[in-house]
Amino acid sequence: MLKGKSSKSALIQITPKQNRNLFLKGMFLMELLEGEREIIVEHVDAILKNYRNDRENLIPILQEVQGRLGYLPGLAMEKIAKAINIPAVDVFGLATFYNQFRLNPPGKHQIKVCMGTACYMVGGQIALDSFERRLNIKEGETTCDRNFSLERVACVGCCSIAPVVVVDDIIEGKVTPTRVDGIMLSFETDSQKKKNEKEKCEEEGNQLWVQFLQKDAMKN
C-alpha cells in the first residue's frame, strides 16, 4: 500500500490483489507522492495532541484528519490506531463503514452529483453518466492526474432546482449533458488561458511589440 520501508511497522498490509479489489470498488489507495508522508505525520501528530486518546474520540479524530488532509491515508489510520491502542483493522473498518470517510485523495476539483430523490427523478443519473463519460472514471474515483474526483451525494437540499451538481462548492442547478460539457469546457479554457497568458507575458509580449514597431515604421 505504502512505498517500502514502513511495512515493518504497518499493521494493515494490503496485497496488490486486495488493492486491485479495492480499486474496483472505487476505494483504491493511491501511492503517496514525494513529501506527502512527512505532511501526514505532522498533521496527525498535531491532531492527536488535541484529543483524549480513547475510543469515543475516534470518529472526531478521523473527521479532523480528513478535514485537514482531504482523505484518510493508511499511514494516518495506523498512527491513530497506535495512539488509541486498538487494532488498526478497527480503524480501517470504521473508515470503510461510514460514507463520510474516503481512502483516496480527492481531486483538485471535486464534482458531486446529487442523487436525492428529487434529483434522481429528473435526471441525476444522466448527469452522473455524462461526467463519467467525460472524465473516464466511475463515481467515487479520482482521475489519474488527480485533477478531478467524482462522487454521488445524498440530497444537498436544493430540490427545487434539480438535478443538482456541486462543482467545487458552486452549486449548478438543472444540469443537462450540455451543461456538463460546458462545465468541463470552462475548466479546459481556464487552464488553457492561464498557460497562454504566461507564455504571452514571457515571449509573445516582445514579439507583438516588435510587430507594432515595424508597422509604425512602415506608415512613416
Binding site: 480513547d54 475510543r55 474520540n57 478521523l62 461510514y98 460514507n99 470517510f101
Partner: peptide, 18 residues
C-alpha cells in the same frame, strides 16, 4: 459520519461510542 442506519437508536449510540 454519514451512515443512514445510525438514525436507528442503538446504532447511533454505538457510533457515538466510536
Amino acid at each position: 459520519s454519514g451512515a443512514f442506519v445510525c438514525g436507528e437508536g442503538t446504532a447511533l449510540v454505538n457510533s457515538m461510542e466510536g
